[in-house]
Nucleic acid binder design. Structure first.
Length: 817
RNA sequence: GCCGGGGUGGCGAAAUGGUAAACGCAGGGGACUUAAAAUCCCCCGGGGGCAACCCCUUGUGAGUUCGAGUCUCACCCCCGGCACCA
């Protein structure tokens, strides 16, 4: 296949040569001085991988290649591009895998990291390996612990007993967002509830700001929407319902409810508390305590799968207690039911069965009264309700507010409640505080010491890192306590405050804490005495472009925004948003189907690179479809880019000096224009198509290329196929790396302009001919030429011509009737 | 149920309201070659016609427009996310 005489393209030779050179010359890495003095810095970040034992698959390669192409493009435009790579190697993934194969994660991770590094180098990523991070290294997690301490100092970390999601299979606590439909996100086991002491970060204090800032950052709309939904802001009111005794006298206890429809308060015919609500004991009529407690115990033990089934029949029991509806003054019964959740709002609701479908279903189930308080068009106060009515209308059965339009009623009723002292407007968020503790082994120990006298004492900064000890028995058990709690020689220590014997915190922190700040560390890995250097951070951050998976739209991206906001507020950072631009890449499928181990259709990069080379693989991946939408990897399809790179090689190396052909020259300038537009828009597939089309024009009819016709194509393809670009660039006589200068070509608009243009001629919007006319030809002339076409004549014959639509350089349309 | 993103040839996909299917794969035919590879040229949505040409075609149905893959409305299907959040 290799034609020696013509010096054929040998991908593996070219790729090995340039990877070696990049390493020898430090093409992609920065010295500390270079980081400090960078001119026009551009921080090109991509989500760092978790180094699995399987190695990188084509989906990872796709994401990294797309991000790398962006970085290489910026570099060719003259920006100083910092493109680091690291490993997110702590966490339950690694730990579970280690358990499965019976090895210690401390032994496993380094070989996985080595394999990932090999693969990442092999695909020709422009990574600065001098500034890599591995979250499991004490030099890194020392500063993860430092971040924890900063939050603790700021009063944003607290330990409290809380009902948590417990996965009985992983034997660990899961954050709410790691529970999917009541099941463990990772293993699919139904999740149970437990009460365990946990560390929380108070991200809810930042909810409004996290929401507001979304308005001015350049992120994919989709990602922003996900965060907006996750934060879940809702506006409504807090209303107070006083508890009354059998005689109808207030007992002094007040139940607060949160509602978004305070205007329907006249329709609140009963109240429902969450089974876990603290007032359940107080309110329950002693005669009914048996069934109430039984129900509560059942709800408590019930796994969240059953509890979260939406379409299940509503259950609940009456407490026998009553409270007064502050609007109507009437006593209404208090129930408990598991459809009311303790961790949203106040854990209690006023039930308005007429206008809330859940309450309606419950009322039907237990024969509770249903009152209409909103009349839709054509309804009156007594129109029976077949289901909850949530549409527009006016208030009815609402005393002084009858006739108020629903559009004004929320405000009117809220004001009324506030004036009378039983309520006020309130904003609520769906977002919960971030549970950061894990009762596991494979993570950074939380840097706290528990002292009987002094309580929870932060580990002094100078004592960091709290090193995770190597232990052989790291298997979690059912106790809900970290494996570290079995290592007495590790956890017994002295209190930094009073010197008494004390115990270390044995929980480790969530991996999302590791990944919440890693991009601050990359440019500052040269510093051992601080997490990040102020000057360097000012130079490089915020991140200019962040590319990663949409699956991290809420968790990782929200948590890292929160941490950066906190560090900003504490005076450690100038910026408060970590990423100026974020774009989510699409997902790769293979042969029309989702890639999965069980289907056996997982594509691995190494054999593809062996056969075709990294440049071909990269180009093919980027050619398959729009980067933000993903694509379908078809083994056959790689032939296209493979042949294309061969032809490019051939044309460049056989190119002759001399005048370009004017038509080809025009094509070249048009191509430069198009590619320059499309690469920053991540429209890689069409950019590559344009270069292919241009090369086809250059080679059309078997002609030999002129140097001026193919030389610009080398940088144009360089973001996708960097090795061949380097080699061709060198063979064209240039010194040094193509990426070390602003080598992106510029198009000449005058040379890109077409001299003659093909114009569509339509009759009644149907194409009847196309004509070539000179650019800028006068309208009259074009219309006359159009009319002269035989086929047009035929269609105009005998018809009444009503209008002529003329669109310059596009078409002529005769409207006849 | 709610919120996103989609639905275009045999396949991956292109198309500022203006010639639908660029680019590529697969397929067919040809040139060059002893032969093959590579390369180059031609064909390649469906139907009709000897031909010139004509008709149909972007999930379905309406609408706006001289003109709709593109805009509007309704509906169907696929993919993601959220989901008893009061």
């Amino acid at each position: 296949m290799v034609n020696e005489e013509r010096d054929g393209y040998d991908p593996s030779a070219v790729e090995e040569k340039w990877q070696r050179r990049w390493e020898e010359r430090g093409t992609n890495s920065f010295t500390l001085d270079e980081l400090r003095s960078a001119d026009d810095p551009y921080y090109n970040l991509m989500m760092f991988p978790y180094p699995s034992a399987e190695g990188l698959h084509i989906g990872n390669i796709y994401a990294f290649t797309g991000a790398d192409a962006h970085g290489r493009y910026q570099r060719l435009r003259g920006r100083t591009v910092f493109e680091p790579m690291g490993f997110d190697a702590f966490g339950i993934h690694s730990e579970n895998f280690a358990l499965k194969v019976g090895k210690n994660p401390m032994d496993l991770i380094p070989s996985n990291v080595a394999n990932f590094t090999r693969q990442l180098k092999r695909i020709g990523g422009m990574f600065d390996w001098e500034h890599s991070v591995d979250t499991t290294q004490p030099e890194y997690y020392k500063w993860t612990q430092w971040v924890f301490l900063k939050l603790l100092e700021a009063g944003l970390a607290e330990q409290k007993e809380a009902p948590v999601n417990w996965c009985p299979s992983c034997k660990t606590v899961l954050a709410n967002e790691q529970v999917v439909g009541g099941e463990c996100e990772r293993c699919g086991t139904p999740v149970e509830q437990r009460r365990i002491k946990q560390w929380f970060f108070k991200i809810t204090r930042y909810a409004q700001r996290l929401l507001d800032n979304l308005g001015h950052i350049d992120w994919s709309e989709r990602t922003k929407k996900s965060q907006i939904n996750w934060i879940g802001r809702s506006e409504g009111a807090r209303l107070d319902f006083p508890v009354v005794d059998d005689a109808g006298n207030e007992t002094g206890t007040v139940i607060e409810v949160y509602t978004t429809r305070p205007d329907t308060v006249f329709g609140a015919t009963y109240m429902v508390l969450s089974p876990e609500h603290p007032l359940v004991d107080t309110i329950t009529n002693p005669g009914l305590s048996a069934p109430v407690y039984a129900y509560r115990d059942k709800a408590k033990s019930k796994d969240l799968v059953a509890r979260q089934k939406v379409d299940k029949t509503k259950t609940g029991v009456s407490t026998g207690g009553y409270c007064r509806n502050p609007a109507t003054g009437e006593a209404i019964p208090i129930w408990i039911a598991d459809y009311v959740l303790m961790d949203y709002g106040t854990g209690a609701i006023m039930a308005v069965p007429g206008h809330d479908q859940r309450d309606f279903d419950f009322a039907k189930q237990f024969e509770l009264p249903i009152v209409r308080v909103v009349a839709g068009p054509g309804d009156d106060a007594d129109t029976p309700l077949e289901e909850a009515y949530v549409g527009p209308g006016t208030l009815v059965n609402s005393g002084p507010f009858d006739g108020t339009d629903v559009s004004d009623s929320v405000r009117a009723l809220t004001d009324w409640a506030a004036e009378n002292g039983w309520g006020e407007a309130q904003v609520n968020f769906r977002l919960h505080d971030w549970c950061v503790s894990r009762q596991r082994y494979w993570g950074p120990p939380i840097p706290v010491i528990h002292c009987d006298a002094c309580g929870a004492v932060p580990v002094p900064e100078e004592d960091l890192p709290v090193v995770l000890p190597r232990i052989e028995d790291f298997k979690p058990d059912d106790s809900g306590i970290s494996p570290l709690a079995r290592v007495e020689e590790w956890f017994v220590t002295t209190c930094p405050k009073c010197g008494a014997e004390a115990k270390r915190e044995t929980d480790v922190s969530d991996t999302f804490l590791d990944s919440g700040w890693y991009f601050l560390r990359y440019p500052s890995t040269d510093f051992e005495d601080k997490p990040f250097d102020a000057d360097i951070t000012r130079t490089w951050l915020p991140v200019d472009m962040y590319i990663g998976g949409q699956e991290h739209a809420v968790l990782h991206l929200l948590y890292s925004r929160f941490l950066i906001m906190v560090l900003h507020d504490l005076g450690h950072l100038d910026h408060e948003e970590p990423y100026d631009v974020f774009r989510a890449h699409g997902l790769i499928i293979a042969e029309g189907a989702k890639m999965s181990k069980s289907k056996g259709n997982v594509i691995l990069p190494d054999p593809v690179i062996d056969e075709f080379g990294a440049d071909t693989l990269r180009t093919y991946l980027m050619f398959m479809g729009p980067f933000e939408e993903g694509g379908d990897y078809r083994a056959e399809g790689i032939q296209g880019p493979y042949g294309f790179l061969h032809r490019l090689w051939d044309s460049v190396l056989t190119a002759e000096d001399g005048e370009s052909d004017p038509d080809v020259e025009r094509k070249v300038h048009q191509t430069i224009r198009q590619v320059t537009e499309q690469i920053p828009a991540l429209a890689y597939n069409t950019a590559i198509a344009a270069v292919m089309e241009c090369l086809n024009a250059v080679r059309s009819g078997g002609r030999t290329a002129k140097r001026a016709e193919v030389e610009p194509l080398v940088p144009l393809i360089a973001p996708f196929a960097p090795h061949i670009a380097e080699e061709l660039w060198e063979r064209l006589g240039h010194e040094g790396s193509i990426f070390d200068g602003a080598n992106w070509p510029e198009h000449d608009e005058a040379k890109a302009v077409e001299s003659s243009i093909t114009i569509a001629v339509q009759v009644n919007g149907k194409l009847r001919a196309s004509i070539d006319v000179a650019k800028e030809a006068p309208e009259q002339e074009v219309v006359a030429a159009a009319r002269a076409e035989d086929n047009v004549k035929r269609h105009l014959e005998g018809a009444q011509e009503r209008r002529v639509i003329y669109v310059k350089d596009r078409l002529v349309n005769f409207v006849v009737g």
